[in-house]
């Protein structure tokens, strides 16, 4: 199978590629979540045209392939003066792609916060800012964390698509190695196994985080019932 000396020779490049993968993934997730959160907040403003615009944005992003969005950003961008380096375009692309999905996740979370809690906070004289920070966001985080983790795992897989616009991430480096060594098949098998492991690790870590964030559910209740809801998801 795979000649081990190849790994020594290409090890540094692969490690660098993995670093770029993690960077794109982390930055993409962050941008996606921040944008998604802002979109969710803007959607709460009762101005119809604004809502339509946001709705249209979300539908367009969710209705078109990620690859087309990337091409539009990376190849089409220069036509309107947006010149981005491949990696920057990749990160921004991941962020924009993720933002539509995160916006929907957050919206569901926002709607799931019991109205009475917000009303109680209002009647206590809390400002909207602190209601958001102390009441809504914590409750939202608990109910949406499984979806957030799921989306982050999906974005892990989407990072390989960045190789198509020549972002020097792991997939790109591995394809370079495959092309130079003719060990195409071994490389792809190795890559498949590696990504399988990576996505599994991300999901496992996500489940841990989930258990950590929802831990109070098991502590707050006397016994039994809510313990089950917390563990049932894991």
């Amino acid at each position: 199978m795979l000649d081990l000396s190849l790994l020594v020779q290409y090890g540094p490049a692969l490690l660098r590629g993995f670093g770029v993968t993690i960077l794109c993934w982390g930055a993409g997730c962050l941008i996606g979540m921040v944008l998604g959160f802002i979109l969710m907040l803007l959607r709460q403003i009762p101005v119809k045209p604004l809502r339509w615009v946001i709705r249209a944005y979300i539908e367009v992003i969710r209705g078109t392939p990620f690859l087309i969005q990337l091409f539009l950003l990376y190849s089409g961008g220069p036509s309107i003066g947006l010149r981005l380096e491949a990696t920057a375009a990749g990160i921004l692309g991941l962020g924009i792609y993720g933002s539509a999905y995160f916006a929907e996740i957050f919206r569901a979370g926002y709607q799931a916060v019991p109205k009475g809690q917000v009303e109680a906070a209002l009647s206590l004289g809390m400002s909207y800012g602190s209601i958001l920070r102390r009441v809504i966001v914590p409750a939202m985080l608990v109910s949406t964390i499984p979806s957030i983790v799921n989306m982050m795992a999906i974005l892990t897989k989407e990072t390989v698509v960045l190789s198509i616009i020549t972002v020097p991430e792991l997939m790109y480096e591995m394809q370079t190695m495959a092309a130079e060594t003719f060990a195409t098949f071994e490389t792809i098998v190795g890559m498949a196994l590696f990504y399988w492991l990576l996505v599994e690790v991300v999901s496992r870590l996500g489940r841990r985080l989930e258990a950590r964030v929802t831990r109070f559910l098991t502590h707050a209740s006397p016994q039994g019932s809510s313990t089950q809801t917390a563990t049932a998801r894991a």
Binding site: T64, L67, I68, S79
Partner: peptide, 27 residues
Amino acid sequence: LTRTSQTISAANYRPLEIYLAAGVIYL
């Protein structure tokens, strides 16, 4: 669709328009 858009935009140097059109078709 994606491959064809790539081919066309490589020939006419109009990636923005072509990929926009492709996106609309997907949508």
